[in-house]
């Protein structure tokens, strides 16, 4: 932990302003997608995708390309292949995802150890570097947030039916395979674009924790989704302010604030809590 800087001074700095905006958008995006991913039992999928993204970043570094731009097609192709594999395999999904993410993470770390020219820092890949978020990153995150809001909002009825029961959704004419595919693609894009800010190890926390906290205190679906997105954005901003004020690592600070938010939700909703 280094020397703390006055918060008011930090807020004047352009990189901190970009970081706060990036955190707000990334957190809201994670909460929005997470509210559906958690109920569809895709939490571990997003975790595996995040961990495996290091392989995509490594490929970018080995090819001498911008890792973020390589990561987007990598995450999309990887997500499609893995979801296809999960659908067809007779192995339990969690076991299969474990094999995939631990092996791709291992391959990536070994490959990275041979890269002598890489100027980056392995810690920022693992835990994110939200202070290094550029205007281009902010543009991409904003576009993705708008796309996700439009898609999930306009097909709200189909998304809810698909989330609660697939056969009921099919009987009501919902294009289940199409929506399942589009959601996986959206989740892969969110993971790929948020990795720089959040890191491969913490990305799933952005997807899972705000949604779980919101679930504990919500009794209407719209409230649940909006609260998950709001909590995601708020926790990210508070975590970054905490990180700036106390000179702590930014990604882990945000996750600790998310955890505190989850604990508050657990305390507020004992009757509907995770244990009852």
């Amino acid at each position: 932990m280094g020397e703390a800087a006055p918060l008011a001074e930090l807020l004047q700095l352009p990189f901190m302003q970009r970081a706060l905006l990036g955190g707000l958008l990334t957190g809201a995006l994670g909460g929005l997608l997470g509210s559906f991913a958690v109920l569809r039992q895709l939490s571990f999928f997003s975790d595996a995708l995040g961990h495996s993204s290091l392989l995509g970043i490594t490929i970018g570094i080995l090819l001498g390309l911008n890792p973020t731009l390589v990561l987007i097609p990598f995450a999309v192709i990887f997500a499609l292949l893995v979801s296809r594999l999960v659908e067809r395999s007779r192995l339990p999904t969690d076991a299969l995802l474990n094999i995939i993410y631990s092996s791709s993470l291992s391959v990536a770390v070994v490959a990275l150890s041979f890269v002598r020219t890489y100027q980056g820092n392995i810690q920022s890949l693992l835990f994110g570097d939200i202070l290094g978020v550029s205007w281009l990153d902010l543009g991409l995150i904003s576009a993705l947030l708008l796309t996700a809001l439009a898609y999930l909002g306009l097909t709200r009825r189909d998304q809810i039916l698909l989330t609660i029961d697939e056969s009921l959704a099919l009987s009501r004419g919902v294009a289940v395979p199409v929506h399942r595919l589009l959601f996986i693609l959206l989740l892969a894009l969110v993971v790929a674009i948020s990795i720089k800010a959040v890191g491969v190890l913490l990305i799933s926390a952005f997807v899972v924790i705000p949604a779980c906290a919101s679930r504990l205190v919500s009794s209407h679906f719209n409230h649940y989704v909006l609260l998950a997105a709001g909590l995601g954005g708020l926790c990210a901003v508070l975590g970054l302010l905490l990180s700036g004020a106390l000179n702590l690592p930014s990604g882990p600070s945000v996750v600790i604030v998310q955890l505190l938010g989850f604990l508050v939700a657990l305390a507020l909703a004992p009757r509907q809590g995770a244990i009852s």
Binding site: V38, L39, T163, I164, D165, S219, H220, H223, Y224, Q272
Partner: peptide, 8 residues
């Protein structure tokens, strides 16, 4: 199913 205590 009503998967995972869907808040609906």
């Amino acid at each position: 199913g009503v998967r995972n205590r869907c808040p609906l």
